[in-house]
Nucleic acid binder design. Structure first.
Lengths: 261, 261
DNA sequence: ACAAAAGTGTTGACCATACACCCATGC
DNA sequence: GCATGGGTGTATGGTCAACACTTTTGT
């Protein structure tokens, strides 16, 4: 508390403690950096048929890193927001109706792009976005600007730039998001079985995150899934009820800390 | 599953499904935006003597928004990382030894800065950072570039640009971080009483987040606080034990989901 | 003595985990 | 029948919230 006088209900200001000796020590700083701003997308999907978590990659068609894979990316256009740019790259690679998209992190340190050494004082900043889409619905667009492919998260090729780091960051976010927000229902079909939800969770979080019957009762107790009564027969075994995500029942839970484990 | 053939252990590629008609629909896009990249800091501290959550603001000394308050900010310099820039602004306003700093969010939509309408095609991107510092230790630097002040979070002045939005975002992050990571111990002194920890939590999260005795036992059960045995007398009442944060005992809990409620 | 703050203990409600077990279907 | 997946129930131990109570100080 010594040396921290505070007046009730007033801002504590540098004016109050101006010392006469500490005037303008104007150190010379390097000049401002010059930035190109792009958006990099980490787009995930879950292939329920094969229990694989997939990431969308694009083959580079020019230098630097020609012939290497990287994340779908673009530079931001005039009049366009960051999220619009992210939407645009996504839409240029795949066609989907339902998706979850959110900003991930910004990477802007020096040395991210080898072109920096060619164009002096040029820097490259990437605002990364994280997306989850429905695999069964996602239609790859045949792109003149390069080959596009889903890669299983556990057999990734070497990536250009610092994209492995970005991807790893996105993977961590996916696992966290799945645990405490209902993003799974953004990419599941309108009607789904609880088995499908469980499958999605296990392929992302690993086999032993929870036991099916406990997962099931926990999820139902949250109260935002409603049983349509309709049964779906998926090959052998007893037919499962089809459920629907009830957005209205979920609304009051929004912003509340939730655990979906 | 229809129309989604997948080969085991191979990427699913647009090459596999190339359709001859979908070649280069080269829509004309607007040209690339031209960005200036800055860093905006939301710097919090907790005044334990008055139970107030404070934010550091800076008075603007030039247009636009001359005379209005805004967050401490700077443009990124050559050779400097984003975090280094964030550190630099912070260090130019206050002197602190201990702090917690992390990236918050990037704001880069069109129309954020009124100068955009003057310089055509110019855009302003802010990578915001969030910091928590120890109030008692933080010494405001008498800045030639403008007045600096701590403002209580509940009596903020009007802010320039979209800084209210950034600040609100930072406030939300602070509350969340406090609940599930040990950032409080980054800004508490080396030796502290459990009452001080509780006080910090209540001024950030509100009076009714938890009862003291429950908070206490929960925190101790986590096992990374060690009682030094030394007693501290703070005015009236029974003297409290001084505790120390044990980084080694905490290490195994790192990356694990924790609740500090 | 009394107030104030630290610290301990108890209780009942709720929740997580690990199972065991029944149900409905395809083959 | 039997394998397969869907669905229900239960027993055990743990955690959470509320609150009563004791301890140690300053005045």
């Amino acid at each position: 508390m010594s040396g921290s006088e505070v007046k009730k209900d007033e801002a504590i200001s540098s004016e109050d403690r101006r010392s006469p000796n500490s005037l303008g020590h104007t150190e010379t700083l390097p000049p401002r950096a010059n930035f190109k701003v792009g958006v990099d997308n980490v787009i995930f999907s879950v292939d329920l048929a094969q229990n694989r978590l997939l990431v969308l990659l694009v083959m580079r068609e020019r230098e630097p890193f020609l012939g290497k894979w990287n994340l779908p990316r673009t530079l931001v256009r005039q009049g366009e927001s960051l999220e619009e740019a992210a939407d645009r790259v996504l839409a240029s690679k795949i066609r989907v109706k339902n998706l979850y998209l959110e900003q991930l992190y910004s990477f802007g340190g020096p040395g991210r792009d080898p072109r920096e050494s060619l164009e002096p004082y040029q820097r490259y900043l990437s605002v990364s976005y994280f997306a989850l889409v429905r695999f069964e619905e996602a239609e790859l667009i045949d792109n003149p600007a390069g080959q596009v492919a889903w890669y299983p998260i556990d057999t990734l090729p070497q990536l250009a730039f610092d994209h492995s780091k970005i991807l790893e960051y996105g993977h961590r976010r996916l696992r966290n998001k799945l645990e405490y927000s209902p993003i799974a229902f953004d990419v599941l079909p309108d009607l789904f079985t609880l088995g499908e939800v469980y499958q999605l969770y296990t392929t992302v979080l690993g086999e032993n995150f929870s036991d099916y019957s406990n997962f099931r009762s926990k999820l139902l107790k949250l109260g935002f899934l409603c049983d349509t009564g309709v049964k779906a027969s998926r090959g052998a075994g007893r037919p499962a009820s089809l459920y629907r995500f009830d957005a209205e029942a979920f609304a009051p839970l929004k912003n509340k800390p939730l655990v979906f484990i």
